[in-house]
């Protein structure tokens, strides 16, 4: 009886502590939201003060910021590039993974290891030469960058898909082949449905990466087409003076799609991240 009471008390302390910690974790975002409604000269020096009648500017910062950096365009490009790239990666990487896992020869095995190896190479190693190659091949546009994302995303994606394909009983596809399915329709009708769980993981990992990616799009298409991270970095400008009001408002707008996405598919995101982390 006494045990239970102390355990209950311990749990209350623990819950209180975790609640406090949660508030600390959320505070930075809350502060940005609050400041996005303050006049731009009242932000940098006193970010921890709530807006007053004098400093409150309603949605001015949002209106300002959106037109200043072309936020709506940027959001459009971010959505376009992220969605198209992820779809392309899911289709082609899963096809490749299935093929090189099932058709065993020296070339395919080597290819598998090169895909795995590419996960280790930091972006800085290829950033300059990749940009040049893409320029020469005229891939420095929103359509071309999708191909580049397929190339960069295929390392992790083929690796994860291959691991999953190995766990699919081969009888499944042999039966389909005997029934007269071509490899292509076997893939479409038998393999693709089975790959659903790992596709969710691969899709989430790639969308988080591409949505937040700054350096690759800024080098490749940044002068003409801005994604959201590029637009925000652009706000900083070269002159050292940042419109803090617009900055706060744009940070809030950049966070909103991520939070919505997270709250909608939270379970898949957390599971996907765990699955992706165990890749080594």
């Amino acid at each position: 009886m006494k045990m239970k009471q102390t355990a209950g008390f311990g749990n209350i302390v623990l819950t209180a502590f975790l609640t406090a910690l949660s508030i600390i974790f959320l505070l930075p975002i809350f502060i940005v939201v609050v400041n996005s409604f303050k006049g731009k000269f009242y932000i940098s020096e006193k970010p921890f003060v709530l807006p007053t009648a004098k400093t409150f500017v309603n949605f001015d910062n949002y209106v300002n910021g959106i037109s200043k950096i072309g936020f709506l365009h940027a959001a459009g490009w971010s959505f376009y590039i992220t969605i198209c790239s992820v779809v392309v990666i899911l289709i082609f990487a899963s096809m490749t993974a299935w093929y090189i896992t099932r058709v065993k020869n020296k070339f395919n095995t080597t290819l598998y290891y090169v895909f795995a190896f590419s996960m280790v190479v930091p972006f800085q190693m290829v950033m300059f030469t990749m940009t040049k190659v893409a320029n020469i091949l005229h891939l420095d546009n929103p359509l071309g960058i999708i191909l580049i994302y397929l190339g960069f995303g295929s390392g992790l994606s083929v690796f994860l898909f291959s691991g999953f394909v190995r766990s699919i009983p081969i009888e499944l596809e042999e039966a389909a082949m005997i029934d007269g399915c071509s490899p292509l329709s076997t893939y479409g009708r038998v393999i693709l449905p089975v790959l659903k769980p790992i596709s969710v993981t691969v899709g989430i990992l790639n969308s988080m990466w591409i949505w937040n990616d700054y350096l690759l799009p800024s080098l490749l298409i940044g002068t003409e087409y801005r994604t959201i991270p590029i637009a925000i970095q652009y706000l900083k400008g070269g002159y050292g003076s940042i419109d803090m009001g617009a900055m706060m408002a744009m940070l809030v707008l950049a966070i909103i799609p991520i939070v919505v996405f997270y709250l909608v598919c939270q379970r898949y995101i957390i599971e996907g991240v765990i699955a992706g982390s165990v890749k080594g």
Binding site: V126, M130, K132, V133, G155
Partner: peptide
């Protein structure tokens, strides 16, 4: 895509 984005630049 992999060759253009990774193998050749590497």
């Amino acid at each position: 895509a992999f060759s253009i984005a990774f193998v050749i630049p590497f």
